[in-house]
Amino acid sequence: MSRICDGRVVVVTGAGRGLGRAHALAFAAEGARVVVNDLGVGLDGAPAADSPAARVVAEIRARGGEAVAHGGDVATTEGATSLIRVALETYGRLDTLVNNAGFLRDRMLVNLGEDDWDAVVRVHLKGHFLPLKHAAAHWRAEAKASRTPSARIVNTSSGAGLLGSVGQGNYSAAKAGIVGLTLVAAAELGRYGVQVNAIAPAARTRMTDRTFATAMAAPDGGFDAMAPENVSPLVVWLGSAASAGVTGRVFEVEGGRIAVMEGWRAGPETDKGARWEVAEVDGVVRGLLDAAEVPGAVYGSQVD
């Protein structure tokens, strides 16, 4: 075993189940000490009675690893600051933050309530920003004290954030926002020894059970392409010192597939050198569109 995370302290949000749990176990298997955060809420963000974070900590310890649970709400300043504080007070350092926490409240836009919009944007986007902010403040202080870290942040976007997804306007907007946050954070924090990347994973979790209903188990015990554990090796590598020099990138990961996503960039263009007349715009824009690549289809849309 490589144990590429020996000595590192890793925080994983939303780590009680699904992808987060898989990440926490994978980091621990590679030698990391893990802070397992989970608020213990249901799929829609409503309070639940159990403590999944404690169960994951017990799993890690049973395998000989080190872990501690944190049950705070990372979409609040109090929860985010206490999350970083738990890592520092328990293990004396922080090396990697994996932002993963989230839930769904799917509705078509005309039926989407303001509360459902706010709740999903809050947990996904604000729940990424606040832990990132407070971890970055610690690493900036370390760099200014001439202890520049080899720090890593791995954010969790989605194909819905890259292409859109019918019935998930709130989720798609939040996940697209996470990509923008990742790019800005990578540019701002590099001087402090912090690399920031994002993944757009596809895996079977509580959030995607309906989407992957036809792929609930591997046939005849073969490779389960939808297992959340397939995503974790990339996350562990991005969260380790081995990923030196990789920052500001978005990776799509599913089963055995890893792809570097290429974001918005200028395509076909023309410049008149003067203001366009309205009557000219139709022909100009249609000509540019004819020369441009066709964008990927929005998930759930009908494609002819």
Rank of each mutant, 00 (worst) to 15 (best):
G193A: 04
A241W: 13
F251H: 07
R257W: 08
T156W: 07
F103I: 01
V10F: 06
R85E: 11
G273Y: 09
A141S: 14
P149N: 13
V10E: 06
T270C: 06
A266S: 04
R249M: 08
R275H: 10
T90E: 06
F103K: 02
A227V: 03
G296P: 11
A145D: 08
A259M: 03
G245A: 15
V86T: 15
A200R: 08
A137Y: 13
V194L: 12
V235K: 14
G283A: 11
A29Y: 03
E277V: 05
R286V: 12
D106F: 04
N170V: 09
A135I: 11
F129L: 13
T182H: 04
G161A: 01
A242V: 11
A160I: 13
V98L: 06
D220M: 09
A186G: 12
S165E: 12
K272Q: 07
L112N: 13
G92C: 08
T148F: 07
E229G: 02
L132K: 02
P131K: 02
I199G: 10
G40W: 06
G64T: 03
R140Q: 02
R85M: 10
P47R: 00
T211D: 14
K144Y: 12
E269H: 01
V285C: 00
D304V: 14
T156N: 01
F129P: 14
A198N: 14
L112A: 11
C5N: 06
A186W: 11
G287D: 00
V68F: 06
N197G: 09
A202N: 14
G64H: 05
A203M: 08
L130K: 01
V246F: 15
P47Q: 00
V284Y: 07
V98C: 05
V298I: 11
A135Q: 08
A279I: 05
G72E: 03
